[in-house]
Simulated scan of single mutants.
Amino acid sequence: MPIPRMEKIIPVLKREVKKFHTPIVEVVAAKGHDPFCILISPMLSLRTKDATTAAASKRLFRVADTPRKIVALSHSRIEKLIYPVGFYHTKARSMKKTAQVLLEKYRGKVPDTIEKLVELPGVGRKTANLVVSLGFGKDGICVDTHVHRISNRLGYVRTKTPHETEFALRKKLPRKYWQDINVLLVTWGQNVCAPISPRCSVCAIRPWCKRVGVGKSR
C-alpha cells in the first residue's frame, strides 16, 4: 500500500523548519508561559510581523501576565506596552475585555475547550485551537492563512476558507499530526511557500505537491 502523502511530507517539514525562526506563539509556549499568555499572543500577532509581536509580548508579559494584572492596567498603558503591533488600540481593548471576562466568569482561569474560548472577546477558532493545543496539550488544528493556503496548494484539501479547512483537516489529517501542522505550515509559508511567487525550486516537499493555483514561482 502506498504511503499517504502526509506521512511523507510531515517528517520532511519537521527536519526542514529547523532552519528557520519559530513562530512567536510556539516560542511563548516553549518558554513555559501559561494558557493566558498563549491566548494573548495570537491576539497581538494578527496582521503583525513575528518580530514585532515577540517584542510586544515580552514587554507586556514582563508587566502583566495574568488576567488580574491586565485588568489593573489602564487602556493607554496597555497600548504603550504593545505598540507598534497592528491595530493596537483595538487589541488593547479586546485584551482587557477578555481578561475581565476570565475574572468574572472563570475566576481568572482560561477555559480549556474551543466552545468556551470562542465566546471570549476577540477570540476566534484559530486562537482557540492554539490555546487548547499549546496551552493544555489537547488535540486541536489551528488554521491560519498559511495552513489554509498550503493545504489547498498541496491538493490535500479543496476549501475556500480557513474555517472550512479546519474541518476538512479534522476529517482527513491523522490525529497524531494535529498539534504539529500549524507550526510546520506557518513556518513553511513564511519562508518558502509564499502566497505570491512561492520558492518551488527549493521546496523540499515539492515531489508531493500538486501546486494547485500556482502560477509564477521561483
Rank of each mutant, 00 (worst) to 15 (best):
R77I: 00
S74W: 01
K58N: 12
R59H: 01
S76P: 04
S41W: 08
D34L: 14
A55K: 14
E26H: 12
T53R: 02
D50H: 13
A56G: 06
L46M: 14
A72S: 13
V28F: 08
T52W: 02
A29C: 04
F36S: 08
R68G: 09
K31L: 12
I24C: 15
H33N: 11
D34E: 14
S74G: 15
V28H: 04
M43T: 06
A64R: 10
A64C: 02
F36A: 04
S74A: 05
V63R: 11
K31T: 07
A56R: 04
E26M: 14
S74V: 02
A51K: 09
D50N: 07
A51G: 08
I38G: 06
T53D: 07
R68E: 15
I24V: 15
A64I: 03
P23R: 00
A72I: 11
V27W: 14
M43I: 15
I70Y: 09
K69T: 05
K69P: 02
D65R: 13
T48Q: 03
L73D: 06
A30N: 07
K69R: 12
L44R: 05
F36H: 08
I38P: 09
S76V: 06
A30T: 07
K31Q: 12
P42D: 10
L46I: 12
S57C: 13
I70W: 11
S45A: 15
L46G: 14
P35W: 04
P67K: 07
V71G: 01
V71K: 03
R62G: 14
M43L: 12
D65N: 11
L46Y: 11
P67L: 00
D65E: 10
K49C: 07
A30F: 04
A54W: 13
T66N: 02
V25G: 09
C37L: 02
H75G: 08
A72H: 05
A55V: 12
V25W: 10
R77S: 09
P35D: 03
D34A: 15
I78D: 01
R68S: 14
T66S: 14
R77M: 04
M43V: 11
P35A: 01
R62A: 14
S45N: 06
T53A: 13
A54V: 13
F61V: 05
I70E: 12
P42G: 13
P23H: 01
S41T: 15
L44E: 01
L46H: 15
V63C: 01
I38W: 07
S74H: 03
R59S: 03
R62K: 15
V63D: 06
V28Q: 04
S41V: 15
T52G: 00
S45H: 04
S41A: 15
P35S: 02
T52A: 08
G32S: 09
K69L: 07
S57A: 15
S74N: 14
L44M: 07
T52C: 01
D65M: 08
S45P: 06
A30L: 13
I78S: 00
A51R: 10
V71W: 00
A72D: 13
M43Y: 08
F36I: 03
A29G: 01
A30I: 06
R62Y: 11
S76T: 10
D34F: 10
I78W: 00
L60A: 00
R59E: 04
T52S: 04
G32P: 05
V71S: 03
T66L: 03
S45T: 09
